[in-house]
Simulated scan of single mutants.
Amino acid sequence: MTSNVPTTYKEVFKTDKGVVYQCDATNRLILEFWDTHTALSARDFAQFRRMVETVDIRQMALSTDAAHDVEILTPPRSERCYVLTLCEIVHLRELLTGARLMLDLNAMLRECGCSTVES
């Protein structure tokens, strides 16, 4: 992962495989995965997260058919295309789920008037 993160980016959630940042200047979430950066609106982020969650990893794991070795996913309104193996899908799910939970936690804290959680 890169160390040259713009100062307008706030880390939302990080794993050893990637990181999700929030950019208040552009009102976007930045997905850093595979040393690439994909900027997504909150709606597109949620849609992509649901897309990743609906991949049938059980089918991928059990199938001997080569067609189930990878899954091709394209985030909404993006030219990026991810060709993911079973392990990569699991890592991406972990990253996206963790980011969603942190965003939800921060929203709940703002609603109750508490300060937001800093990474």
Score class of each variant (00 low, 15 high):
5 V>H: 09
17 K>S: 14
116 T>W: 10
49 R>C: 08
58 R>L: 14
30 I>V: 02
14 K>I: 07
100 R>E: 15
22 Q>T: 13
52 V>W: 01
60 M>V: 01
99 A>V: 07
63 S>H: 03
22 Q>S: 15
54 T>V: 12
10 K>G: 02
79 E>M: 08
97 T>G: 13
115 S>V: 02
6 P>G: 00
103 L>N: 11
74 T>W: 08
19 V>D: 06
35 D>W: 05
9 Y>Q: 04
74 T>Y: 04
45 F>Q: 09
21 Y>D: 09
36 T>P: 09
14 K>D: 11
81 C>L: 10
11 E>Q: 14
45 F>V: 08
78 S>G: 12
1 M>L: 12
15 T>C: 02
63 S>A: 05
109 L>V: 06
106 N>L: 01
24 D>R: 15
47 Q>W: 09
93 R>P: 12
62 L>Y: 05
100 R>N: 15
107 A>W: 00
93 R>E: 12
27 N>D: 13
90 V>K: 13
41 S>I: 10
25 A>P: 00
67 A>P: 07
55 V>I: 15
1 M>T: 02
27 N>G: 06
36 T>Q: 08
72 I>L: 12
98 G>Y: 03
19 V>M: 01
47 Q>H: 12
46 A>L: 08
7 T>H: 10
72 I>M: 10
15 T>W: 11
22 Q>H: 15
31 L>K: 00
30 I>D: 03
53 E>C: 04
19 V>G: 03
38 T>S: 12
49 R>Q: 12
101 L>F: 02
31 L>P: 10
55 V>S: 08
29 L>F: 05
104 D>I: 03
77 R>K: 12
113 G>A: 03
77 R>G: 06
33 F>I: 00
111 E>D: 10
40 L>V: 13
19 V>Q: 03
68 H>S: 12
26 T>L: 13
100 R>F: 08
62 L>V: 06
95 L>P: 09
47 Q>A: 14
112 C>M: 05
102 M>Y: 10
117 V>H: 15
47 Q>T: 14
16 D>I: 11
71 E>M: 08
16 D>W: 13
37 H>R: 15
104 D>F: 02
98 G>W: 04
16 D>Y: 11
112 C>I: 10
37 H>K: 15
52 V>A: 04
36 T>F: 07
56 D>V: 09
31 L>G: 00
45 F>T: 08
95 L>Y: 07
23 C>G: 08
96 L>W: 11
49 R>M: 14
16 D>V: 14
62 L>K: 01
18 G>S: 04
18 G>C: 04
46 A>F: 04
58 R>M: 13
50 R>P: 07
14 K>R: 07
34 W>Q: 03
40 L>N: 08
99 A>G: 08
